[in-house]
Design a protein around this nucleic acid. Structure first.
Ligand SMILES: [Mn+2]
Ligand SMILES: [Mn+2]
Ligand SMILES: [Mn+2]
Ligand SMILES: [Mn+2]
Lengths: 159, 159
DNA sequence: CAATACAGTTAGCCTTTGCTAAGTTATTTA
DNA sequence: TAAATAACTTAGCAAAGGCTAACTGTATTG
C-alpha cells in the first residue's frame, strides 16, 4: 500500500485546488438552475419592452424573428408570460407589459447594459460582447455587477 | 397622420440604443440556446474528473450530493453521458471518463478556472465569484476568455 | 367587398432535466 | 455469513422549451 501522509510536507505549486465543501458546491449548481428558470422570461420581457419603445408595438412575429424561433414557440411562451402576470394581450393583438413585467424588463435591461458595456471596456469586440452578454447577464450577481460598473466607469469607453 | 422625419435632427443623449438587426439579434439568442445544450454535460464531466483526482473515484452518490440533485437524476444523466461516449462504467460501479470525456473535462476546467480567477481579480468575494463563475463559464467566448486572462495576469492576485 | 396575404393560435410531437417510489446490487457489520 | 445499510437503477410523472402542420382571425388590395 502506498504511503499517504496526513499532510503534504509543503504545498506543490501545480497542486490542483481542493474541491469546495459539498454543500457549497451544491449551492453553486443550484444557483445556476435557478437562473435558468427565469432567463427566458427575462429575455422575453426585455425584448417586448424594447420593441414597444423602438417599434411602437410588440408583435409575436417580430419576437419570433428576433428570437430566432417559430411563431408557435412564441405563442406558447406568451401564454406562460400572461399566466405569470408579466404580459397582457387580447387574442390576435399585440403585447403589453404589466407593471410587474415592466419592472422585470427594466431590471433586465439595466443589467444587460452593464454587462455589455463592461465587456467592451475589457476590450472585447462588439459582436462578441453582444453574444456573450446575452448569456452572461443571467448569471451575474449584484456584487459582480457592481464590480463591473466600477471597472467600466474607471477605464471604460465613455457613454 | 403624425409627421415622422426620416432622420432625427440631432441624437438625443438620453436616446435608447437602437435594436441590433434582427439576424444579429437572433444569433445572440441562438448562441445562448446552444450553450445550454452542452452546459450540464460540461459540468458533469468536469465534476467527474475532479472527483477522480481528489477522491480517487467518481461515485454517483457523490455527484448527486455535490450537484444537489437526486441519485435518480444522476443515474439518468450518466446514461446520457455514456451514450454520448463521454463516460464509461459498469452497472453499479464507479465512473470513468473516456478520452473524449477527459478532453471536455480539461477544457471545461481550464475555462472555469480562468473565469473564477478573473472574478476574484475584479474584486468579487470568493463565495460570489464561485457562484457566478459556475454559470458564466458556459457563456464566455474564447475572445472574452483571452481578455479575462490578460486582465488577471496584469492586475490579478498571483497564483 | 372578396380574395389574398399575413399574423396568430392550437394540436400533437419530441428532448431535456428534474422529481418520487420501488426495486436491485454491493458493502458493511453484528 | 446473514442482516442491515448504502449505492445504484428503473419506471413513471411533470414542466420547460423547442418543432411542424393545420387552422383561425385580421389587414391589404384588386
Ligand atoms: Mn437580455
Ligand atoms: Mn439573455
Ligand atoms: Mn465548471
Ligand atoms: Mn458550470
Amino acid at each position: 500500500m502506498i504511503d499517504t501522509p496526513d499532510e503534504a510536507p509543503f504545498p506543490s505549486l501545480s497542486e490542483a485546488d481542493a474541491l469546495p465543501p459539498s454543500e457549497q458546491h451544491a449551492q453553486q449548481y443550484a444557483a445556476v438552475r435557478n437562473a435558468h428558470e427565469t432567463e427566458l422570461l427575462e429575455d422575453y420581457v426585455e425584448l417586448i419592452g424594447d420593441l414597444i419603445v423602438h417599434q411602437g408595438e410588440a408583435r409575436s412575429a417580430d419576437i419570433a424573428l428576433r428570437m430566432g424561433v417559430s411563431q408557435a414557440t412564441v405563442s406558447k411562451m406568451v401564454g406562460r408570460l400572461k399566466s405569470l402576470g408579466l404580459v397582457a394581450s387580447k387574442p390576435y393583438r399585440s403585447l403589453f407589459l404589466t407593471e410587474e413585467g415592466e419592472t422585470m424588463a427594466r431590471m433586465s435591461r439595466e443589467r444587460h447594459a452593464i454587462v455589455l458595456q463592461f465587456l467592451r471596456a475589457l476590450g472585447v469586440s462588439d459582436d462578441t460582447a453582444r453574444i456573450d452578454a446575452e448569456g452572461m447577464e443571467h448569471h451575474v450577481s449584484q456584487e459582480t455587477l457592481d464590480a463591473m460598473q466600477r471597472f467600466s466607469r474607471q477605464r471604460g469607453i465613455p457613454d
